[in-house]
C-alpha cells in the first residue's frame, strides 16, 4: 500500500485520509454531484430509487442514502461536500449531520463539541 495516507487511523476518525474508502465512494459521490443539476433534483424527489439506480449504487449504498444514514454514507466513502447536496433537496441542518456522525444527540453535540451554550 503506497503513500502516507493509507495508514489506518493515523489521525482517528478522519475518513478523508482513508484512500480505499475515498476511492470506494466514487459512485455515491457521483450520484450526489448530479444534484447540482435542477433536473436531477426533480428526478431525485420524484423517484429516489430510480435516481440512485441510474448511478449504479449497490444495495448497501442505496439503503444508506434512502434512510439518510449520514454516518453510513461517509463510511461508504461519501465525501461530505457531495452528500450535503442531498440536504439541499431534503433539508437538514449540517450540525444534525455532524451530531449523527459523532453519535450524539443534537444538543449534546452543540454543547460538547462546538462549545455552544444550549
Amino acid at each position: 500500500m503506497g503513500g502516507p495516507f493509507t495508514e489506518p487511523d493515523r489521525i482517528p476518525d478522519t475518513p478523508l485520509l482513508d484512500r480505499e474508502r475515498q476511492l470506494g465512494g466514487y459512485r455515491i459521490n457521483k450520484m450526489a454531484m448530479g444534484l447540482v443539476d435542477p433536473a436531477n433534483r426533480e428526478a431525485f424527489k420524484a423517484d429516489e430509487r430510480a435516481y440512485l439506480d441510474r448511478f449504479g449504487l449497490n444495495d448497501e449504498e442505496k439503503t444508506a442514502v434512502l434512510t439518510r444514514d449520514w454516518r453510513e454514507m461517509v463510511r461508504l466513502g461519501g465525501n461530505l461536500f457531495f452528500i450535503l447536496k442531498i440536504s439541499a433537496v431534503d433539508p437538514i441542518r449540517i450540525t444534525e449531520i455532524g451530531a449523527h456522525q459523532a453519535g450524539m444527540d443534537h444538543e449534546t453535540f452543540l454543547r460538547d463539541r462546538l462549545g455552544k451554550k444550549v
Binding site: 475518513p15 453519535g103 462549545g115
Partner: peptide
C-alpha cells in the same frame, strides 16, 4: 473544523 467522521464537530479555538 471537521465535518465528517466520528470526530465531526472538532474545533480548536
Amino acid at each position: 473544523h471537521q465535518l465528517q467522521g466520528a470526530r465531526a464537530g472538532f474545533v480548536n479555538p
